[in-house]
Amino acid sequence: MTTGSTLPRRALGRQLRKLRERNSITQSAASRIAETSPQSYGRLEDGRQTKVTDLALNALANAYGATDSERRLLLGLAQEIRSAAASGSGWWRTYADAIAEGFDHYLALEEAANWVTSWQTAVVPGLLQTREYRRALTWAAFPDRSPDEVERILDVVQRRQDLLHREGFRFEALLSEAVVRYRVGGPSVMSDQARALIAQSEDDGVEIRIVPSSEQYPVGLVAGSFVLFSFPLLPTSKLQEPPVVYKEGLAGDLYMERDIEVERFSDEARRIRHVALSPTASRDLMLRVSKEHR
């Protein structure tokens, strides 16, 4: 399983921040030690893509008074980043023209995760969308796009869905009943989408559970839709990167990593599971809805 360079980049950034703050050194001073700009050093600690050399890491380790094991960890993470980049991760770069600005970060997290929980109140998650369902959403969101541009966007969605067949990957979809009842694209499109969800729910790595509209306890409605990414251990360092929460917004996307924030959404997911139908009962409901759409 390939996790790309997202996880080791995040782990390296977290380790550098911990060492820097332990020594009460500012980011500006750290950037001078690494002989890079403050902006580049900031991206390094944020786990974003930026160049870093072993020479710079050794200089930082010296300035931070790192132990031998801490120094080896920094250099090992840098090697993991380079190895991941050399393995050809980041398939979405060939679709740059079809991806919204900033969404490559979401795709990198999705690719790196081994467990994704998606709570949706209105729209089928991208990993489970049929092509025609996504086409209807795309035309609604981007009415001025050409047919060729729309097809490129649909190709990205279809390519993302390869994750569902990756060994060790688990996708948990928690959906409000409204998601399968909205007539996105018309009755025929929604009937096909509901049947596709039923088929996908039979896969070992996919679990789909519906919160029925009859549920009187409105869990999840106040929180709104969100996605929770959980990650495997890094292969060499064996570090465990903390989960990330994603919330989509019309004016911009929000990524949350602070423990208190992640825990709130993790608790919300547990509460939603408590009121959701079982996978079997959810399939029965989706089958009824599919027939109603037809």
Rank of each mutant, 00 (worst) to 15 (best):
E172H: 14
S176P: 03
P279M: 09
W91M: 05
I210H: 04
R294C: 07
L74D: 02
R82D: 13
D54M: 10
R72G: 07
Q240F: 03
P243F: 06
V219C: 02
V157T: 02
L221F: 07
D148K: 07
D68T: 11
T3A: 14
R183E: 14
G185Q: 05
V123G: 02
Y246S: 07
L75V: 06
S31W: 02
P143E: 06
E111I: 13
L128P: 00
E241Y: 10
W139Q: 14
K247E: 12
S146A: 13
E132F: 11
F231P: 01
Y255M: 04
S83L: 10
G205S: 13
L12D: 03
G185K: 09
R152A: 11
A269Q: 05
A178H: 15
F226P: 01
V262M: 10
Y106S: 13
E35T: 14
L228Q: 01
F171E: 00
D46A: 15
Y64D: 05
T6C: 08
S87K: 08
L109N: 11
Q216R: 11
G90V: 10
H274N: 12
G13H: 03
R183F: 13
R135P: 00
D68G: 09
I81F: 01
T236A: 12
A196D: 08
G102C: 05
V150D: 05
R270F: 03
L73Y: 01
A98P: 00
L239V: 03
P187S: 11
S31C: 13
P243T: 09
R131C: 07
G65L: 14
R48L: 14
W91H: 07
T280D: 13
I208G: 00
R181A: 06
T67H: 10
D204L: 04
E151D: 14
S87T: 12
T138P: 02
L60K: 09
D46C: 10
A78C: 10
A84E: 11
A63R: 14
A136L: 10
E35N: 13
F171Y: 15
D259I: 12
S230Q: 15
G186N: 12
K247W: 03
S213W: 12
R283T: 02
H274T: 14
S225E: 06
R264S: 12
R20F: 06
E263N: 10
L137C: 07
S237Q: 11
Q79F: 05
I260E: 14
S213F: 09
Q49E: 12
A199H: 09
D46L: 13
R181Y: 11
S146M: 09
Q200R: 13
P212I: 09
V124S: 11
A61K: 11
Y106T: 06
T130R: 12
M190I: 04
L127F: 05
R135L: 12
Y246G: 02
V222C: 04
K238V: 05
A122C: 06
S69I: 12
L44R: 07
L60F: 08
L75S: 04
A113G: 10
Y133E: 02
I99R: 01
P243D: 10
L174W: 02
V156S: 00
R20S: 05
D267T: 13
V227W: 00
E151A: 06
G185I: 07
A59Q: 10
E132T: 15
P143F: 08
G224D: 09
E151T: 05
R258V: 08
D192P: 01
R9W: 10
R131N: 02
R160M: 01
R17P: 06
G88Y: 05
L60S: 11
A29N: 04
